[in-house]
Amino acid sequence: MSTAGADRRIDYIEFNVADIAVSKAFYGAAFGWTFTDYGSSYCEFRDGRLSGGFTTLAPVSAAGGPLVILYADDLEETLARIETAGGQIAKPIFPFPGGRRFHFRDPDGYELAVWSSR
């Protein structure tokens, strides 16, 4: 893997999760992420642009930390996919400078957001 152009850029995001299979099912269904398992306690995900991991090696700590924000061309369709996959909407769609967004909680309680310029 090349690291050219990676200096001072977000490279990886890692979530401590209770159950890797549940996280894979949710993010696979809601966003189409792909996965590579590395044993029973670690799984790497790829969203097509960024990679990260799910691990059960530390306790889940969904409160605090930075807000991870994903982009969607169709905000309403993405919200529906998240609900169908088992996510909970924390803040319904609202306007903000530059577009619209909503917040959701994944099965472990992590709050993330999705935005669209449309």
Results as ranks from 00 to 15, higher is better:
residue 42 Y to G: 09
residue 45 F to Y: 13
residue 50 L to K: 12
residue 95 P to H: 04
residue 49 R to W: 10
residue 41 S to Y: 04
residue 84 T to L: 13
residue 93 I to F: 03
residue 67 L to R: 11
residue 60 V to C: 08
residue 80 A to H: 11
residue 46 R to G: 14
residue 48 G to Q: 03
residue 100 R to I: 03
residue 33 W to H: 07
residue 91 K to V: 13
residue 98 G to S: 04
residue 95 P to M: 02
residue 73 D to P: 07
residue 57 L to V: 02
residue 88 Q to S: 12
residue 44 E to Q: 03
residue 70 L to R: 01
residue 87 G to R: 09
residue 72 A to Q: 02
residue 52 G to L: 10
residue 89 I to K: 09
residue 87 G to F: 10
residue 82 I to R: 11
residue 36 T to V: 11
residue 70 L to E: 04
residue 33 W to L: 03
residue 72 A to F: 09
residue 79 L to W: 01
residue 79 L to F: 00
residue 46 R to W: 09
residue 71 Y to G: 10
residue 40 S to V: 09
residue 39 G to S: 05
residue 90 A to P: 08
residue 67 L to Q: 15
residue 68 V to P: 02
residue 75 L to D: 05
residue 54 F to H: 06
residue 94 F to D: 06
residue 49 R to V: 14
residue 45 F to I: 12
residue 77 E to P: 00
residue 79 L to S: 01
residue 42 Y to A: 10
residue 86 G to P: 03
residue 82 I to G: 06
residue 58 A to W: 00
residue 86 G to F: 12
residue 37 D to L: 05
residue 83 E to F: 04
residue 65 G to D: 06
residue 68 V to S: 09
residue 59 P to Q: 05
residue 89 I to C: 06
residue 84 T to F: 01
residue 38 Y to M: 13
residue 92 P to W: 01
residue 38 Y to T: 03
residue 88 Q to D: 05
residue 36 T to W: 02
residue 78 T to W: 05
residue 84 T to H: 13
